[in-house]
């Protein structure tokens, strides 16, 4: 995956003209199904979503053009700002998962480490566990009266915390669960990146007298920067769309529920509880714009810190 991002230094590709006509047809044949899926499941919904954001949509269809009314409505309510702040908070905290994943990846790839595959399985387990199960287990751990966390705090004389029903605190907690769930994937991608670092470089550093920490900071971290960049872009895109963990961990009876909405949960409330698909589509468009801007900023900033070999 890192290879794709090394555009400039990649092996020269053959131009399309060099492909014979027959081979081009084969290419179309192979790309076709995926391309069709892309159009039907991604491109069309995006176009349709943008279209709907300018319509007033009845609960059972029936659309009337209303110009930018939906956007005016969405922007004039305090919910959007609050949801945006919550979502950004979540996204920022999730970024902390990346250095953690990097350190773990380096540690479990240490030569001669015993039980390496066991560690890999353990860290990857949350990734393949259903979010519903993850949310349920964490809710038990975080229970204000009977949760392990609060029981431990009380045992050492500290007061318990209402982890999931205190605004802001609950977003931090949910982001930590989000990190925990995504760690496995990030470790795998870092492992792939680590395997791309030539042993000779590490050995050279060792001969120059660099200890493990120095080797990590001065050799491994810079050489992994393309992977780090990839993961940070993916992480921001994914965490800006957080919904399932919030939906599963914050019940409607939670006193902090209205202060704990993300942009997508606001979208869900508007579209599927309040039956206002136009306003929901407007929120989705706002989210799309925000993600585009954030990704563009990340691509700009990469020149400052990403080193392609």
């Amino acid at each position: 995956m890192t290879r794709q991002l090394r555009g400039r230094n990649a092996a020269p590709r053959r131009s399309a003209a060099q492909l014979s006509r027959g081979r081009a047809w084969w290419a179309v044949l192979f790309i076709g199904p995926a391309g069709l899926g892309l159009v039907v499941f991604y491109l069309w919904p995006i176009i349709r979503g943008i279209y709907l954001s300018f319509q007033d949509v009845g609960p059972f269809g029936g659309e009337t053009f209303v110009g930018i009314d939906n956007f005016v409505e969405v922007f004039s309510e305090p919910d959007l700002g609050r949801a945006l702040l919550n979502t950004l908070l979540y996204a920022v905290i999730c970024l902390i998962g990346i250095p953690v994943a990097m350190i773990i990846a380096v540690l479990i790839n240490t030569k001669g480490l015993k039980g390496r595959s066991l560690f890999r399985v353990l860290f990857f387990l949350p990734v393949v566990t259903m979010p519903v199960a993850v949310a349920l287990v964490w809710r038990l751990l975080l229970n204000v009266d009977y949760g392990v966390l609060n029981l431990s705090l009380r045992a050492i004389g500290l007061p318990g915390v209402a982890w999931l029903s205190t605004p802001v605190v609950n977003m931090v907690v949910i982001a930590i669960v989000g990190i925990w769930m995504g760690l496995g994937t990030q470790i795998i991608i870092f492992t792939a990146g680590l395997q791309g670092i030539p042993d000779t470089l590490i050995e050279a550093a060792e001969l120059d007298g660099a200890g493990p920490v120095r080797r990590f900071v001065s050799v491994i971290v810079p050489l992994l920067s393309p992977t780090t960049f990839l993961l940070s872009v993916l992480s921001v895109i994914a965490s800006m769309q957080v919904f399932d963990l919030i939906f599963l961990m914050i019940d409607p009876n939670n006193p902090a529920q209205s202060q704990s909405q993300s942009l997508v949960s606001l979208f869900y409330t508007r579209g599927f509880l309040q039956h206002d698909l136009g306003a929901a589509a407007a929120i989705a468009c706002v989210l799309l714009a925000i993600i585009l801007v954030l990704s563009a900023i990340q691509f700009r900033l990469q020149r400052r810190w990403v080193h392609y070999e």
């Binding site: 009266d145 209402a162 999931l164 029903s165 019940d251 939670n254 006193p255």
Partner: peptide, 10 residues
Amino acid sequence: SPTLQQLTDT
């Protein structure tokens, strides 16, 4: 009654 914070957790 328990508080709402307790009620949402249990």
